[in-house]
Amino acid sequence: MSLSPEQVRKVAALARLELSPDQLTVMAGQLNRILDFVDQLQQVDTTGVEPMAHPIPVENVFREDAPRESLPTGEALANAPNRGGNFFAVPAVFSDE
């Protein structure tokens, strides 16, 4: 499989990254080289093999659904790039268009 600069642009949009036309070309070249290498996995016979998402058996861990101490508002907001009162301030979610 080979990625065109246009496909790379779509992936960048999904990943919320802005790449200039020059960067798209460089990125396409680098990703294609990596993908060419990774394509070797298609040759491995994995018939009947269960996918392994975790190296140890993981099961749900439950705890009591009880109120407990949490981060004070001031501390939770301390790293906010922008805040308004006790809230995170963000740009408008809907544009004017």
């Binding site: 996995l41 298609q42 491995v44 994995t46 093999v49 269960e50 996918p51 392994m52 998402a53």
Partner: peptide
Amino acid sequence: LQAMKVRRL
């Protein structure tokens, strides 16, 4: 998905 299968192998 294929990578997760080879991971198990």
